[in-house]
Nucleic acid binder design. Structure first.
Lengths: 349, 349
DNA sequence: TTGTACGCGTTATCAG
DNA sequence: CTGATAACGCGTACAA
C-alpha cells in the first residue's frame, strides 16, 4: 500500500509535462517516438495506473452501468448479471450489481448511491414488481433525471422508461396448449400470485388460456405461493389434499423451475409416478431441468438475450435521448419428459 | 438527463460557502439551525446529490471492495457475492463483482481496472486456482501494492496474502467415513482433477482417506472430470462402463452437487436404484439438494461465513497493515437420503 | 511536437 | 459558527 504515483510524478521523472504523459497514455499519434519511449519507460517502472475517480470527474461519465436486482439464490439472476457484464464489457463499459431485498421498497439510499456514483445507466430486473414494492415509480422517475433507465420486467405500470419483457401470454399459452394437446383437461397452476395486481399476470393469462380452450378453470386448481422449491412442495400438498382424488388435475404448471422441483418431490412423496400420474411444466429452463426425474419440460424466456438488448438500448438511449418504448422477446417451450411427450404418453380423460 | 447541480450551485443559491454546504451534508453540529434549514431547503429543491468521483478523489478512498470470481452458473458464486455484498454494506462499503473466465489467465486489463478504480480491497474467490490460470501470483502481487487482498481458496501456493479456506481434509474425510460407517468398502470419486497440481487436493485427500481406512484405492475409482452436471454424467458412464460389474463401487463421492446431479441421472439411466444399488454424496449443500431423488447427502463448506470473514479481514487489513495469514473454516456433512442413512440401509459386502 | 493553465466537484484546513 | 482556499489527479483547450 505504498503511495501511488500520480501523473505529476511520471511527468517530472520523464522530464515532460503532464499533457505529454496523457498523450502517451492515450496513444495520441503526435508524440515524438523518443519522447514516447522515454515516458513509457517511466510509466512502466512505476506501474503507473491513472485514477478513475479523477478521469470520471473530468469526463463527466463513469463508463459504468448499474444492474439492480433482488438478492435471491435463483440462478435466473446470475444469468442476467452474467449477460449484462459481458455485453457491457463488449461495449467498453463495466457492470455493477446492486442488490435489493425481495418484496421491500426500493431503498432511498440505493437511489442516492446510484446518482452519487454517476452511473451511466441503470437496469432494473427480476421480481421488482411485487405489489409490496412501493415507491418504484418514484425511484425510477428520480433516477431518470440523471441517467437512462431500462427495466426487464412486465410493462404493467406506465413508467416512462424503456422496458424489455418476455411474451408472458405465450409463457402461459405454451405450457397450457402443450398439456392440452397431450390430452390433459384438468390443468393446475401453482406459484406467484393469482391476484389481479400481479404485474406478470401469469395467473390471469393462465385462466384466459383455459377459457379459450374450454377447460375448467376451477379455483381449486390455482394456488398462490412463493417462488422457491419449498413453496412448490407446499402448494401441491395444499392443492391435492383439499381435493377429491377424482377431481385431481392431471397436469401442473409451475411459476418457475424451482417450484416445479418442489412439486415433483411432493408428488412422488404422495405416491404418484411421473409423468404417468401427473404431468408438470416449469419455467426458466434452469441448468437442473435436464436432471430432474423425469427431466423437466419448461419455458425458456431467454433472459440472456433480453439482458443483452437491455444493455444495448440503455447505451443507445444515452446518445439518442430516445423516449420510452418496450420490446418483447418471444418465449420457447423446451420439451423434455415431465409430460410424457417424449415417452409417447397421452392422457385420455 | 438535465445538468446536475453542484455544490457551488447550492452554496450560491443558499447564500453560503461550499464549506457550509458540506457541513450540512455531513450533519456537522456546528451549524446554526437557521443556516442549516436554509441550506437543506436548497439541497432538497434540487435533489442535490454529491458526486462520488469528486469525493473519492479528495478522500483517496472509494469505500468499495471488489470481488473477483469466475463467471459460472454455479449457485455457489451467487452465495459468495450475496454474502460479500451484505457484509460490505454492513461495514459501510459497497461490493463490486468482477468476472473472469474459467481456466484462463487473470486479464491484465482487469488488474489495471481494479487499480484505476482505486478499490479499497479485493477478494478473489472460486476456482481461481486452476492450473491453467497462469499469472495469478503476479496479479495478486501487483495488486497488493495498492490494496489489501484476500483469497477464498485452498492455501496451496504461497501468495503472501490473507487466505480463507475450507477444511479440505475434512471435506474428503467426512463423506468417506460416512460411507465407510455405512458398510461401503468400494468408494469412488468423480470430478475435479486427480492430478497433483489440483490445489484443492480433493483427489489426493480422498486417496489418503481410503488408505487410512484400508480401503482399495483402485485407480479405476478415480475419474477426472469437469465441474458441471454433464461432467458428472460422463464421469459415471466412463467409470462404470470400464469396469466389471462385480468391481463396481458401491458409493460415489462427487466433487460438487452439480456433478452429483449428473451422476444420479446416469446411474438411474443404467437401471440402478438409489441408494440401494449405489450411494452418492455431493458437495456444497446447494438449494436443490433436498429435491434430488433421493435427496442428496452433501458437505457444507459454509461459503457465506467464509465470505463474511473475508470481508472483515479485508477491511481490518486496511488499517492494521497485517501480514499474510490463513483462516480455516470447518466443513459439515449434511446427511440426507442418498446414502440410505436415513432409511436404515447398511451395505454389507 | 510540446507545455501551461484551468476546470471537474468535493472535502479539509485555517482563518476569522 | 462561517468563509476562503488549497489540494485531490486528470484531461483539454490554447499557446508556443
Amino acid at each position: 500500500m505504498e503511495k501511488r504515483a500520480t501523473i505529476y510524478d511520471i511527468a517530472r521523472e520523464a522530464g515532460v509535462s503532464t499533457a505529454t504523459v496523457t498523450r502517451v497514455l492515450a496513444g495520441h499519434p503526435s508524440v515524438k517516438t523518443a519522447t514516447r519511449e522515454k515516458v513509457q519507460r517511466v510509466i512502466d517502472a512505476h506501474a503507473y495506473t491513472p485514477s478513475a475517480s479523477a478521469r470520471d470527474l473530468e469526463r463527466g461519465q463513469t463508463k459504468t452501468i448499474a444492474i439492480v436486482m433482488p438478492a435471491v439464490i435463483n440462478p435466473y439472476f446470475t444469468r442476467v448479471y452474467n449477460a449484462a457484464y459481458r455485453e457491457a464489457e463488449a461495449c467498453g463499459y463495466y457492470a455493477w450489481l446492486f442488490q435489493i431485498e425481495e418484496h421491500k421498497p426500493i431503498p432511498r439510499e440505493l437511489v442516492d448511491e446510484l446518482i452519487r456514483r454517476r452511473m451511466d445507466g441503470v437496469i432494473f430486473a427480476g421480481g421488482i414488481w411485487s405489489t409490496q414494492r412501493t415507491g418504484l415509480p418514484e425511484a425510477l422517475e428520480r433516477l431518470r433525471h440523471y441517467m437512462p433507465v431500462v427495466t426487464i420486467c412486465p410493462p404493467a405500470v406506465d413508467l416512462d422508461c424503456i422496458c424489455i419483457h418476455s411474451d408472458l401470454v405465450a409463457c402461459s399459452r405454451l405450457p397450457v396448449r402443450h398439456l392440452h394437446a397431450l390430452g390433459h383437461r384438468r390443468i393446475a397452476f401453482i406459484g406467484g400470485s393469482m391476484r389481479l395486481n400481479d404485474p406478470s399476470k401469469r395467473g390471469e393469462n393462465f385462466l384466459e388460456e383455459l377459457r379459450a380452450l374450454d377447460l375448467p378453470d376451477d379455483p381449486a386448481y390455482h394456488v398462490d405461493a412463493g417462488f422457491d422449491a419449498e413453496s412448490g412442495e407446499r402448494a401441491v400438498l395444499r392443492m391435492l389434499s383439499g381435493l377429491d382424488r377424482r377431481r385431481w388435475p392431471t397436469g401442473i404448471i409451475a411459476f418457475n423451475d424451482q417450484m416445479a422441483l418442489g412439486a415433483i418431490k411432493q408428488l412422488k412423496q404422495m405416491g404418484l409416478s411421473l409423468p404417468s400420474d401427473m404431468a408438470i411444466i416449469g419455467c426458466d429452463n434452469q441448468f437442473f431441468c435436464p436432471y430432474t426425474d423425469p427431466p423437466l419440460t419448461t419455458v425458456d424466456l431467454h433472459p440472456e438475450e433480453m439482458t443483452q438488448s437491455a444493455v444495448r438500448e440503455l447505451l443507445l438511449a444515452r446518445d439518442n435521448q430516445a423516449g420510452a418504448f418496450s420490446l418483447m422477446r418471444e418465449a420457447s417451450l423446451i420439451v423434455r419428459e415431465s409430460c410424457g411427450a417424449k415417452l409417447g404418453y397421452r392422457k385420455l380423460g
